[in-house]
């Protein structure tokens, strides 16, 4: 009888351990994380999904190409290959602001087979955040801008707008961006 009680006790202990493990796994599944590349434009924080970012370069000489739309800043030499560089401010309606010397970065992004550089003011960090921490973008965002926004999260108490670079490429491919769109100077 006492042996049976011991067995039951051991069963209970084993069950408790298994339960704890299951809960831990559940928590791990629930806390699925995503990598974000956090960057700034005019002191505001934005991010791309890390999986879409191929490399981050110091600002190289950007060669202007006449006969191209305003959202294409030009082309750069990336180890002998030529990459286009986009002015993402055009899409987000952000005023132009001169780069602080040595701080500007070109984020080389690729999605759905399209690859291009994007000029940003600075790359702040590459972080992993729980997927569930990405909330829906605030409803006050302009509808045109919201098209490019996946959601919002926080980084060191700063609000971060997560952008879908694929949507930017898609918009360009659809030719829906006004080529002569003027960006107001700050």
């Amino acid at each position: 009888m006492g042996e049976e009680i011991e067995k039951r006790k051991s069963d209970r202990i084993l069950e408790a351990i298994k339960k704890r493990l299951d809960e831990k796994q559940t928590i791990q599944v629930e806390e699925k994380k995503v990598e974000l590349v956090v960057f700034t434009l005019n002191d505001a924080f934005y991010a791309f999904y890390g999986k879409d970012v191929k490399e981050i370069l110091s600002v190289l000489t950007i060669y202007f190409v006449p006969g191209t739309p305003k959202y294409i800043l030009g082309i750069v030499n990336v180890r002998g290959d030529i990459q286009s560089v986009l002015n993402i401010r055009t899409f987000l309606n952000i005023p132009e602001q001169g780069l602080t010397e040595g701080k500007g970065r070109i984020v080389i992004a690729e999605k759905n087979g399209v690859r291009s550089g994007v000029l940003v003011d600075s790359v702040v960090d590459v972080v992993e955040v729980p997927e569930e921490s990405i909330k829906q973008a605030i409803s006050t965002l302009n509808e045109e801008i919201r098209y490019f926004v996946v959601g919002e999260t926080t980084y060191k108490n700063n609000n971060v707008v997560l952008l879908d670079i694929g949507k930017v490429f898609e918009k360009i491919s659809e030719g829906k961006i006004e080529p002569s769109a003027e960006i107001p100077n700050k």
Partner: peptide
């Protein structure tokens, strides 16, 4: 030229 630029030059 990069495809994105090639496809959108005027």
């Amino acid at each position: 030229l990069p495809p994105l630029l090639e496809n959108h030059k005027t």
